[in-house]
């Protein structure tokens, strides 16, 4: 299969940088998978953690963030590769800050739910 046009511009980066970029992509993909597994696990294994509607909404939000993260991690991989090919500065991304906030919020919400559980 033909590579997209942007992958034939500039010079091919050192294979070590390409592989590092690929591993970063995979690490974000695993984060997305962890969110999905976490959402189903809470839904199935801790059904009394919150009233059903609240529980479903929280788990849906986690799974939705997982889906978005899978798309964002692809875009991030492509942008990093483009920057490396064209010898530009690596693009700044809010992904790390965003995911830090998401994970912290999830931890606080579930900690509160566990504490107030009757």
């Amino acid at each position: 299969m033909r590579e997209p046009a942007w992958r034939r511009t500039g010079t091919m980066p050192d294979y070590r940088f390409s592989l590092a970029n690929e591993r970063t992509f995979l690490a974000w993909v695993r984060t997305a998978l962890a969110l999905l597994a976490g959402a189903v696990a809470i839904d199935q294994l801790a059904p009394e953690i919150a009233p059903p509607v609240v529980r479903i909404i929280l788990c849906m939000v986690l799974a939705l963030i997982g889906a978005v993260l899978a798309v964002v991690s692809y875009r991030r991989w492509a942008h990093q590769e483009q920057a490396m090919r064209n010898d530009e500065e690596l693009p700044h991304s809010w992904l790390m800050l965003g995911m830090t906030i998401v994970v912290s919020l999830a931890a606080i919400v579930f900690a509160v739910l566990i504490m107030v559980r009757p």
Binding site: S18, V29, L36, A63, G66, A67
Partner: peptide
């Protein structure tokens, strides 16, 4: 010879999105 094909990254990403939809 060793860099990842774009198609593979796209496929992996799309597979996770589909898995997320199945989860939801």
């Amino acid at each position: 010879h060793i860099t990842v094909p774009t198609l593979m990254v796209r496929t992996a990403s799309a597979a996770i999105v589909a898995l997320a939809l199945a989860t939801m």
